[in-house]
Structure formats: structure tokens, C-alpha cells
Design a protein around this nucleic acid. Sequence first.
DNA 1: TATTGTTATACTCTATAACTATA
DNA 2: TATAGTTATAGAGTATAACAATA
Lengths: 167, 167
Amino acid sequence: MNEQVQRTDRLVSVTTDEGQPPESGLDLTYLESTIGYAIRRAQMAVFQDIYRTFAELNVTTVQFSVLAVVADNPGANQADLASALGVERPRMVPIIDSLEKRGLAKRVASVKDRRHRQIFLTDQGRVLLEELKRRFAEHQQRMLQRLGTDHAQTMLGQLWLLAKPNS
Amino acid sequence: MNEQVQRTDRLVSVTTDEGQPPESGLDLTYLESTIGYAIRRAQMAVFQDIYRTFAELNVTTVQFSVLAVVADNPGANQADLASALGVERPRMVPIIDSLEKRGLAKRVASVKDRRHRQIFLTDQGRVLLEELKRRFAEHQQRMLQRLGTDHAQTMLGQLWLLAKPNS
DNA sequence: TATTGTTATACTCTATAACTATA
DNA sequence: TATAGTTATAGAGTATAACAATA
């Protein structure tokens, strides 16, 4: 069942053995050779680590992202945040709602353009963000260790090449 | 608003400029330096390309994965497929249902263990899979071109290092 | 007692359309 | 007319629990 068979339909040739596919009784050689399956499994693993990292603080990845971006861009509006984070505008509403309800962020009606609601962190939000960033840095270190610190930098560049090919 | 400011809180130092983050009026330097955000944006881009690739054939990524794995593992049961693909067992039910309804795959009650339903491709399923694989190969070529063909192989290994650190 | 397939449930996410208030 | 925030809705995906059949 696990015998090595010469495959001719792999999308790339795999010659190194750094990086193992998931354990399973099934022959997954085809899927394992695809960027799409590999990146999905990698994201699942990375996000699982983040969720464990933030579990006690009851913060999701997207909530963390909003806090971090607003900290560097105080007064950003919801549409800009949505496009920055790659979520649809309607989804920002419950996300900001939850942060506001917890006293971590606040909406302020813009005086320059009264259609805009500007988002700011509260003092409490800033305090929590510092703790989240501290923990996130530990998470990131774990990810870099998986990659080997010398390869980590190129990995980030390659991910952005996939995400943003025309630039 | 877009002036370059020296940041001290980046999780990794970014010295190269291969690979651009998404356009936005906001300062995203912190998020852009995280593996988590980069891998999420990369997966979004990769899957978007796959969906465009399969659009006319009305096939989702998970349906394609099931067809591909069953082709190499005829008679696999739903639990094995679920764990191989990283989805929960209950989700396999509607996935297999849809493939069965389209006449692409079929469930066969196992005689060795009557709890198992073994999954097989139909002739029609095999024919469609060949077309899907042909199109998928083109998609993968586009992804490899984004990476530069020399880096593509290491990328795959690195993704598996993230996905499966202990192996 | 444990496992497979299944059903059920609830919650999150995604994708759209449309409404309101503003511009 | 166009845009920001919002509401509504429908469809996927995710996560659990539980049940029937079987081991």
C-alpha cells in the first residue's frame, strides 16, 4: 500500500525529501506535487498555531489584523480596512462591532466626509495589541524555525510573488 | 501617507524587494512581514486562479481533489479521503453526493467491512478528470512562472515544512 | 467499546444585492 | 451618479455531537 511507484503525472519533479506530506494510507503523490494543495495545508497549519497562540485571549486572526492595522493607521475607514485585509466590506461590520463591544476599538463619525466612520483603538485596545504582538512574535519564530531561518526570508518573498504577480 | 518610515517592529527584516504586498493607501508593513498574512493572501490568489481554470466545468477544488485521489486509490472509503484532504468526515457526505449525482463517482458497499462505502470513479469521472488535470497543469505552470521556475521546487518543500513540521 | 457513514446543529465565511445617508 | 456603512440573504465551509449499523 505504501510501496514507491514511479509516477509520470507529477506536476513537478520532487527530488529532495525536505518537507513531508501528511501521513495517510492513501497515495497522495499527485496532490502533494501541487502548489494549491500544499499551500492550503500550510495555511491550515499556520493558522492553527495562531489560534492556539491567541486562544486564551479570545481573539481571531482577523480581529488581530484589524487591531494591528488600525494601530498603524488610526482613523482608517472600514472600506479601506476591508480591502487591505482582503475581506468584503459587509464583513467589516460585525468584526468592528465585536471589537467595539469589547472596548478595544471605537467608531468616530468623520467630520470631513460624514459617510465615513473612522476607526481608532482605545487604550485598552492598545494594551491588548501589545500582548497579542508579543505572542504573535513567538508564533512567527516557530514558523521560521520550521523553515530554517535562512530560508524564511525568501519564503515571504515567494508568497508575495504568488499573491501579487503583477508588481 | 505613503512615505517610507523606519519600522522597528517588523517580525522579519525585509531587505529584498521581490514580491510586492497588495496596493492600499494604508501602512501594512507589520502584517506584510507575517507568514500568516502572506500565506493567506497567496492562497487566495492561487485558489482564485484554480476557480477560473475550472469555472466552465463547474468543479470546485475539493471535488477535483477527491476525483484525483480516488483515481489513484480506487475503493478508498470516505473517512480516509476526509483525513487525506484535511476536511471533516461529515463534509465528505455532500461532496460525494454531488459527484455521485453527476455520475462522476459511485459508492459501493464494502464486502470486507460493511461499515465502509468504497468510492470509485465512473468512466465519465475518469474522462472529466483527465480534462481537469490538463487544465490544472496549465494553472500550475502559471504559478511556477510567478515564482520563477528555479525557486518553484524549493517553494513546494517549504510549504510542506510549514504544513508538516514533525517528519 | 470503537469506527463508518450519516444527520443535525450552529457558527463562520463568502458573495451579492440593495438600502440610507451622504457626497 | 457614486461611495461608505449597513442590512439582508443565500450558499459554502467548519466544528461538534449524536445516532444506526457494524466491527
